[in-house]
Amino acid sequence: MIELDDVKKAFNQGRPNEFWAIRGVSLRVDANRITVLKGPSGSGKTTLLSMIGCLSRPTSGRILLRSRILSGLPERFLTEIRRKTFGFIFQQFNLVKGLTVLENVMLPAYPLGLDHQPLKEAALKLLGQFNMESKADSKVEWLSGGEAQRTAICRALINDPEILIADEPTANLDTRLSREFMAIIRDLKQQGKTVIVTSHDPVVFEYAGIDTVVEMRDGNLAEA
């Protein structure tokens, strides 16, 4: 599904503080699998994930999505692919403060210009699946960590993406909630989603349902 071909990423290229965060990664992520990226802090997991999710571009190398080269596409197309193909769950959840849970969930669909009523119903249905319908009209700043997490998952799913990307999704959760999250991930895989997760949480990479663990070290894949 996704192929990375000798991908490198440099920050501040050409300046004295130049730093190569990714130094040549080649990787295949198969469809309908749960892939976990693990590794010590600073090893480049987030950087790699943001390139896979079209949030940034590699300095060199190619990224292919279903054999289509992403790296050279103009910004507009990248945004469209990001919107249609990827759902994001961020470490700090990154919900928009001041909006309600429902509005936050609907947010990624705003640029699509769908009819309001069906979209609202879809969002409520999603919230229902995660036992969040009673919170639909609350402001997100009052949510507990687990509720914020589930809101973020609903938001990631609203555009029905094929690939779910989660960066340290359990960093702000306790063990019980982390297990719950992994159960949700497993369910999503059963619904046909591809999931890519980064984590250094054993609850995540030792979870029974995951398919592949990729270990990273200093911007390279560690020999497993």
């Binding site: 945004t79 990001r82 249609k84 928009v96 947010l107 990624p108």
Partner: peptide
């Protein structure tokens, strides 16, 4: 800083610059 972050979020979840 908050607004900047918000714009980042919007772009990350699929809003175009023009949106």
């Amino acid at each position: 800083a908050e607004e900047k972050r918000e714009i980042g979020i919007l772009k990350a979840i699929g809003w175009e610059t023009s949106d």
